[in-house]
């Protein structure tokens, strides 16, 4: 396990292993080659993109792949474009690219807000959208962002590809539905009119994992919230989401009271654990506070100017 809660406790047995175990290295130059290599080396191989999660795990020997398959040459997966009424983000898009993308920002300010608080510039310059999702760290921000946006993930294999809603993508901490001979290739987000989105995060220090983070999206039509998404990171919310809170928002006119009720539900229904970032009561409080802030900002962004 690699993440906020359990790491320190397992650290002891992995003391001073800050060099990786021996590992083979392959560099793929096309998707076809990636699938060939995955087939050849099997489950003991790992795909490496930005490497900012995998390499630290390898250095402390919590991860010991036999083969690394480097996909950094797959520029074909480095794109952000509009297609079929969707924003399509290639798996190899770096955090820094998404953060500064005018296209993504035009539809969803949540991207720039979340990316600006992900780790630090060094990580953002290298880490990728696909890598972040596949790492499935419970504190991972983009998982919460895409949960709020109700995104769809494209998973590709040698002979076929499939789409999976983000709500079915993660199967638990550090695990996803991506099979041993598959990779995540794209993330898709519906383009929505009259929608607003926002991201809120509190960390002990720049670059630390979130104590809690909340992404929100609302779509408002005729004065009513017709669609709502709330994504939670670092508090062990199932699928990084807060369906109970989303439910009471939909169909109601936005108000401070409504936001307050939704935020309370988000705080109650997540499952944070105590660690050095904070005790459970504080984390629940923080989820409520940040949900309130993210929702309020999303609502004001969804409403037409001057409304």
């Amino acid at each position: 396990m690699f993440g906020p809660a359990p790491l320190a406790r397992t650290w002891g047995v992995k003391l001073n292993m800050q060099v990786p175990a021996p590992v083979e290295y392959e560099r793929a130059t096309s998707l076809t080659e990636v699938f060939d290599l995955l087939e050849r080396y099997g489950p003991e191989s790992r795909v490496i993109a930005g490497g900012h999660s995998l390499l630290p795990m390898m250095k402390i020997r919590l991860a010991r792949p036999e083969v690394l398959i480097d996909i950094n040459d797959l520029t074909e997966l480095d794109y952000i474009r509009i297609d079929g009424g969707e924003l399509r983000i290639g798996a190899m898009v770096r955090h820094a690219t998404l953060m500064s993308s005018p296209l993504a920002g035009e539809y969803y300010p949540i991207f720039a807000e979340a990316e600006a608080v992900i780790a630090d510039p060094i990580v953002r310059n290298r880490g990728t959208v696909g890598g972040s999702l596949c790492q499935a760290d419970p504190a991972e921000d983009l998982s919460a962002v895409f949960a709020a946006l109700k995104a769809t993930v494209v998973i590709s294999g040698k002979s076929s590809s499939r789409t999976v809603p983000i709500s079915e993508f993660h199967t638990g901490p550090y695990t996803t539905v991506v099979g041993p001979e598959e990779i995540l290739t794209e993330v898709r987000v519906h383009l929505r009119a009259n929608a607003g989105s926002a991201y809120e995060k509190v960390e002990r220090r720049l670059g630390d994992w979130a104590i809690a983070a909340v992404g929100a999206m609302v779509r408002i039509e005729g004065g009513l919230i017709v669609e709502a998404g709330i994504g939670l990171a670092a508090v062990r919310a199932e699928h990084y989401s807060a369906p109970e809170a989303e439910q009471i928002l939909v169909g109601s006119a936005p108000s401070d009271e409504l936001v307050e009720r939704a935020a309370s539900l988000a705080g109650e229904h997540c499952n944070p654990s105590a660690d050095q970032r904070g005790p459970v009561d504080y984390k629940r409080h923080l989820v409520k506070e940040l949900t309130t802030r993210a929702l309020k900002r999303s609502i004001s962004r969804a409403l037409p100017e001057g409304a």
């Binding site: 790491l7 320190a8 406790r9 650290w11 002891g12 003391l15 002990r204 220090r205 720049l206 670059g207 630390d208 994992w209 050095q276």
Partner: peptide, 17 residues
Amino acid sequence: NCLGGSLMDYLLPTSIE
């Protein structure tokens, strides 16, 4: 168990703070 055994756990301030 030491809960400050890495710079992920033992936080040093940055210029931002």
